[in-house]
Design a protein around this nucleic acid. Structure first.
Lengths: 358, 358
DNA sequence: CTGAAAGCGCTTACAG
DNA sequence: CTGAAAGCGCTTACAG
């Protein structure tokens, strides 16, 4: 930076300002600095910049399992948004390891590594919430059960989504509709499966069908979880004519088990999932599509907008107007949790049909 | 850190040494420092540590698309290894954006952000190689077409893998065997599809079958790419009795198209892929399984072992012996490229069967 | 085995 | 609009 300053005939302070685009630099000076930096192929040292400026230019993204469709898709969208904005992405994949969760949420002194964090479907205990609040770090959650005070939350309406899926099966004439969802080991405040179960029950009630507990099986949100839940369902005898799986991956596991058991989909059993997984089309799986990439992009934006606004000179920020303004007015007060709810939509393919008796 | 030093009654230099486990600290002192740090809930500032020490404690991981099975699985394994070793992971998802590739490989001054880089199946032009060499950064490639001088490479034997797949089809009695693979837009030095094509042709030749160019279609390594390649194949008339797809995702797209065209798998057309994708079982897809997670773990280890060795005091490193030693002696000379080749294995499921005429 | 001191390369009040 | 100077919080020779 000294070299650049010398070449441009200014101080390093001015080089710093010019390179960051601060408005308090005359156009002529800025151009001279930029030219000098270019000529010397200079780029600021992130380490020094962080230490002196207190900003890391990095966002931490925490997902349960990057290999699952929803999380991979979210991360891809977040990554693109962040990198286009000049931010780096630190990836934390919990992978079911409780200790990792602890480390990420506590010890890691995240605030010194990142300017903000995006928590995707990360289960949070009350103590975790306290820990997060203590970090005093900007953050956004995606499809999180437990809202973090002051953090925006991007998600879909899980209850409505489940209702739509169940109603689709009801409309086809099904009455014995099973539901596979949830994680039995999950004593954490992760409510996605609870919400989806509620929507399922709501829809049944609205149609005058009393939910049969023996048709409601808990398992993991994975292919394997869906397979095992379906095995359990079949083991109980008197199988359902339709299954609403809480995710496409569960639905795929379910279909696999049904076929192995000699049951045809949809002739013997209809199956519907949630997600619109990349492979849903290949498998002919009916589903409720949710916009995973949009949720990622939006979360990244909600996180970055305020960060970028405070980076700007206050004067300029007021001139820029909308750029600095939070997407939702309510997000501004620092403690309220703004939920942005994105729409889902029914996609009917070949895995759902009227029951045979019809 | 000043506080810790004061509480422990030593200098900050000693605190620094004790906390990093350097061997030049007496046990008593170390314990006092650790206790003080614990008591004050102290953790070093990464920014300051980086600036002063020159090490970032971070590894950059570059993948083409995190949403594809192979890359997601690799990243998950790498993430676990890195975090257990106390390193952070910076994710770069190329996503087909050429400019991102440029930025990552050049401008980003990677060496100031990461201590090393893992390049997963990243196409490299000769100029990229020059750029990488100029970075003077430790790195490892996974399944890269172009070897980077001095970097270890972890991969499978693509030629042998393709040969095995093709031979499986030949053994079943197929003679009209199509191949879908490759990226027609790929003028980069990414050789995976070339190697797989060669294995395919080798196997045909060995069986006395002359490869039919009209049965060899190029497309993308995706579900959609497989679907389109298969459409093209059917459009050409006189369809094959079997298809060897260069990846499971392509195979899945292929199956989808075949079914839409009214062809049954495997009765009318057999299909085999490469990967052993999570959903290969659900789809009954025969495939050549490759160890994606193992490749990720191994790459991370090959990258970290030398880094950690140089972090240690030379004296201690020699005491520790094997820890500091490179996995492969040849990896040590700094310019040779060591390839570690992991085994693949044929997994026969329901998508392959003898041709009907049989 | 330990400490004093320099220095890593920036950013930020502060003053002008 | 710009500069001089302090300081961000560590690590590392160097000396002992």
């Amino acid at each position: 930076m000294d070299d650049v300053a010398r070449l441009a005939g200014v101080s390093t302070a001015t080089v710093s300002r010019a390179l960051r685009g601060l408005p308090t630099v005359s156009t002529a000076t800025r151009e001279r600095v930029l030219a000098a930096a270019e000529q010397l192929d200079y780029a600021v040292s992130p380490s020094a910049s962080r230490l002196a400026g207190g900003r890391t230019g990095t966002i931490a993204v925490v997902v349960p399992r990057i290999t699952r469709w929803f999380f991979g898709t979210v991360v891809e969208a977040v990554e693109e948004f962040l990198h286009e904005a000049g931010y780096d992405l630190l990836l934390y994949n919990l992978g079911g390891r409780e200790q990792t969760r602890q480390r990420v949420l506590r010890t890691t002194n995240l605030p010194k590594r990142a300017d903000g964090v995006i928590l995707v479907a990360t289960p949070l205990r009350p103590t975790d919430l306290t820990a997060l609040a203590a970090l005093d770090l900007p953050g956004v959650t995606i499809s999180s059960g437990s809202a973090v005070p002051g953090w925006p939350c991007v998600r879909i309406d899980d209850v409505a989504t489940a209702r739509t899926a169940t109603r689709h099966l009801l409309d086809l004439g099904h009455r014995r509709i099973a539901h596979i969802s949830g994680d039995p080991d999950d004593e954490l405040a992760f409510t996605t499966h609870l919400d989806r179960r509620r929507g399922y029950q709501d829809a049944l009630h609205a149609a005058g069908v009393r939910p049969d507990p023996s048709l409601d099986v808990e398992s993991q949100f994975t292919i394997d979880g869906g397979a095992r839940a379906t095995e359990e369902l079949l083991r109980r005898g008197d199988p359902p004519t339709a299954i609403f799986a809480a995710s496409d991956e569960m639905a795929m596991g379910s279909i696999s088990t049904l076929r192995e058991a000699g049951l045809r989909v949809p002739q013997d059993v209809s199956v519907i999932g949630v997600d619109d997984h990349d492979l849903a089309g290949v498998l002919g799986l009916s589903t409720i599509a949710q916009p995973a990439a949009d949720q990622g992009r939006l979360a990244a934006r909600l996180l970055l907008d305020p960060l970028r606004a405070t980076t700007l000179d206050p004067l300029r920020a007021s001139v820029l107007g909308p750029l600095g303004a939070p997407l939702d007015p309510a997000a501004g007060d620092g403690t309220a949790t703004t939920s942005v709810i994105l729409p889902t939509r029914l996609v009917v393919r070949e895995s759902t049909a009227p029951p045979r008796a019809h």
